[in-house]
Amino acid sequence: MIDSSQAKHQIQHVTNFQDLVSTPFSREINAIGWIRNLYGNFAEIVSKIDVNENITVIDEGQLRELSLSEEGNLAREILLNDLQLLTAHGAAPVLNVIKCYDRDDEFPFFPTDVYSFHVDRSPIPTDTFLCTYYGAPSDILLNSEAIQKITIPEIRDELKKLHSEDDEGFEDFLTENFFDLHYQPKPNALPISLGIGHIWRLAIDYPDSKIPPCVHRAPKEKTERLLLIC
C-alpha cells in the first residue's frame, strides 16, 4: 500500500490488534496500521442510518437493532468487535456517519478545520485511533514533507496582523487558536491514503512527548463516510 522508502521509516504495518496497541512509536515511526481485508457490506449499514446531521453518531444499541442482510451482518460484527477491542483497551471509540465536517471560515487565509493537514493534541499521553470502513479515507503526510504553517513568513505576518503590532502574547495566541497544529505540504509532497478497513494508531502532540506527532487530514467527502475514531 505504501511504497516510498521514507514512508517505511515513519509507518509500520502490523497484523493484529495486540501489536497495534503494544508496538512502541519511535523517533521515526509515528503511524502504525493494522492492515486488514474486511468482508461485509458497510454501505448497507450507512444506508440504514437516519442521517439528519452532518455527523451522526451510531451507538452500539442502534447498530444491533438494524435489520441487515447476511453481508450487512458481517460488517456489523466487525464494527462491534472493533468497538469492543478498543473499549477493552481503555479507549472511547465513536462510530460516525459523516456527511461533512464544519468548515472554518473565521480566518479565510488559514482554515483550522480537519480538512487541513494537522496534528492532534492532548494534555495527557494518548494516541489517536481511526478506521474508515466506507467512503473516502484519511490521508497522512510524512513529517519530512510537511512544514508548520506558522513558520512560513508570509503566513506568520498575516497572523501577527490579526493579533496586534505587539509580539507579547503572540505565541499564546497561536496555541489558543490552534494555528500551531496545522501544516502545509512541501512542494512535491505526496499525501498517503490510510485506506479502507485498516485501524490506524497515530502519534499526537502532548506535553513531554518525544515522538513527532503524525500529520493527517480528513478527506473531502463525495459520499457519506463510516468512521470509527477515538
Score class of each variant (00 low, 15 high):
residue 58 I to C: 05
residue 15 T to C: 13
residue 62 Q to G: 08
residue 38 L to G: 11
residue 185 P to W: 02
residue 36 R to Y: 09
residue 48 K to M: 02
residue 3 D to I: 12
residue 33 G to I: 15
residue 68 L to P: 11
residue 149 K to L: 15
residue 214 C to G: 01
residue 119 V to W: 01
residue 154 E to M: 13
residue 57 V to N: 10
residue 78 I to W: 03
residue 186 K to R: 15
residue 160 K to T: 11
residue 48 K to Q: 01
residue 155 I to T: 08
residue 197 G to W: 12
residue 67 S to P: 11
residue 12 Q to E: 15
residue 75 A to P: 07
residue 57 V to Q: 12
residue 36 R to P: 05
residue 142 L to S: 05
residue 57 V to W: 03
residue 88 A to C: 13
residue 72 G to V: 12
residue 64 R to P: 09
residue 130 L to D: 11
residue 215 V to W: 01
residue 21 V to S: 09
residue 192 I to V: 08
residue 18 Q to T: 15
residue 109 F to T: 13
residue 134 Y to C: 07
residue 3 D to F: 01
residue 141 L to N: 05
residue 155 I to Q: 03
residue 66 L to H: 04
residue 110 F to M: 07
residue 199 I to E: 10
residue 114 V to P: 00
residue 173 F to H: 04
residue 135 G to Y: 00
residue 202 L to R: 05
residue 24 P to R: 12
residue 128 T to A: 15
residue 90 G to R: 00
residue 159 L to H: 06
residue 174 L to V: 06
residue 122 S to A: 13
residue 10 Q to D: 14
residue 192 I to W: 01
residue 45 I to A: 11
residue 106 E to W: 05
residue 51 V to G: 07
residue 185 P to H: 01
residue 68 L to M: 05
residue 180 D to S: 15
residue 60 E to N: 04
residue 79 L to C: 10
residue 196 I to W: 07
residue 222 K to T: 15
residue 116 S to I: 07
residue 45 I to V: 00
residue 125 P to N: 08
residue 21 V to T: 13
residue 155 I to D: 00
residue 93 P to D: 07
residue 157 D to C: 13
residue 52 N to I: 08
residue 203 A to P: 01
residue 148 Q to I: 08
residue 181 L to Y: 02
residue 114 V to G: 01
residue 104 D to W: 06
residue 179 F to Q: 03
residue 189 A to F: 04
residue 174 L to F: 03
residue 164 S to W: 08
residue 83 L to F: 03
residue 27 R to A: 15
residue 102 D to F: 12
residue 23 T to V: 15
residue 73 N to D: 15
residue 61 G to W: 11
residue 119 V to I: 15
residue 229 I to E: 07
residue 29 I to Q: 00
residue 145 E to H: 04
residue 88 A to S: 14
residue 193 S to N: 10
residue 146 A to T: 08
residue 164 S to R: 04
residue 167 D to W: 07
residue 101 Y to R: 14
residue 224 E to H: 13
residue 23 T to W: 03
residue 94 V to N: 03
residue 153 P to A: 13
residue 217 R to W: 01
residue 161 K to I: 14
residue 119 V to R: 04
residue 126 T to F: 05
residue 122 S to N: 14
residue 112 T to K: 03
residue 93 P to K: 04
